[in-house]
Amino acid sequence: MNVRLHVWRQQSANAPGKMVQYEATDISPTMSFLEMLDLVNEGLVAKGEEPIAFDHDCREGICGTCSLMINGVAHGPNEATTSCQLHMRSFHEGQDIYIEPWRARAFPVIRDLVTDRSAFDRIIQAGGFVSVNTGGVPDANAIAIPKPDAEAAMDAAACIGCGACVAACKNASAMLFVSAKVSHLSLLPQGKIEGSRRATAMVAQMDLEGFGSCTNTQECEAVCPKEISVASIARLNREFLKASVESSH
């Protein structure tokens, strides 16, 4: 099959960017979306042009590196699917496909479709952990954890930190990401202890990074490849409120 790509090209962080058109020919429907880009890039290299830079690594939907806005939807048209797990059979002959980077002030473009998402790491560094050192911890079965709590924590912990939530949000808000981490830890007895401190610190860092606020449109939940629920945002809000009440005493 053949498709027409419209791709955001930008030389560097400060250079102006623009959409550039490419014809992708002889595409097999069994190819993954990224393999289609590989092929287009091979063609560009053969012509001596610089290939389209895009982030990718595991190509099995778990590392969270790939990050393409495909036809206006973060990670493309398929639900619960990362860009790397999207296949060309989801597109039709002759289709126009628009590919853009995640767009947010907190995710500046490095080049073409590659953005700098280190803001997420700094949010985790601000408090997304349980403060335990290696060694000297109690036996793993010393604290029983109700199965539903462990399952709910796992649901939130499935977040791959790809940033699709930010990309899809009209406000470029990072609330789904932050709330997934806060929920994961606050649902477990090990993480509950410093729950208030964590929520406050992570929200403060999130604001500092320049993400927008959550206006509860739920667009993030719809594009999340790991189907993290906006219920975790409610949980973060509760944790934050609790922390604020505690700190005022």
């Binding site: 955001w8 206006g72 853009e100 907190a106 406000n171 470029a172 927008g212």
Partner: peptide, 11 residues
């Protein structure tokens, strides 16, 4: 929120 997305999506 406006400040958080300086460049809009074309699509």
């Amino acid at each position: 929120n406006r400040w958080a997305r300086p460049v809009a999506y074309t699509n």
